[in-house]
Computed example of a mutant assay.
Amino acid sequence: MRPREVAARTRYSVQTLANHRCMGIGIPFTKLPSGRVMYRRDDVEAYLNGRLVEAA
């Protein structure tokens, strides 16, 4: 997934995703030789599922 797609899915801005990459936090990503940043769909879903909080 491209950063714009991840931003729409997570409701983070594209800039927030870039900041997270720079700080080494957030969703795992891959930087291709072309410089393009990509996220695996499974990683995005796992990140979102891990952030769910269930009511007690």
Rank of each mutant, 00 (worst) to 15 (best):
G35R: 11
F29H: 15
S34H: 07
N19Q: 08
V37H: 05
G35V: 05
P28G: 10
R9F: 13
A18M: 04
S13N: 05
I25Q: 08
P33T: 01
I27V: 13
L32I: 03
S13V: 06
T16I: 01
G24H: 08
A7N: 07
N19Y: 09
S13L: 03
P3S: 07
L32P: 01
P28I: 06
V6L: 12
G35P: 02
G24I: 10
Y12C: 15
Q15R: 12
T30A: 13
P28W: 02
I25C: 12
P28D: 08
K31W: 02
T16W: 04
H20V: 01
R36L: 12
A8T: 05
V37D: 07
P3C: 04
R21S: 00
T30V: 14
L17E: 07
R36H: 15
R11G: 14
F29G: 01
T16R: 15
R2S: 01
G35Q: 06
R11W: 08
T10M: 07
I27H: 04
R36P: 00
C22V: 03
V37L: 11
L32A: 10
L17R: 04
G35S: 11
R11N: 15
M23Y: 07
R9E: 15
S34G: 12
I25R: 11
V14D: 05
P28Q: 09
E5L: 11
A7P: 02
P33E: 10
K31N: 11
R11P: 02
P28H: 07
I25S: 14
V37A: 12
S13Q: 04
G26H: 03
G24D: 12
E5T: 13
R4E: 14
A8V: 11
L17Q: 01
I25F: 11
A7G: 01
R36Y: 06
A8P: 00
G35Y: 09
V14E: 15
G26L: 11
R21F: 00
V37C: 09
R4S: 10
G35A: 15
V14Q: 10
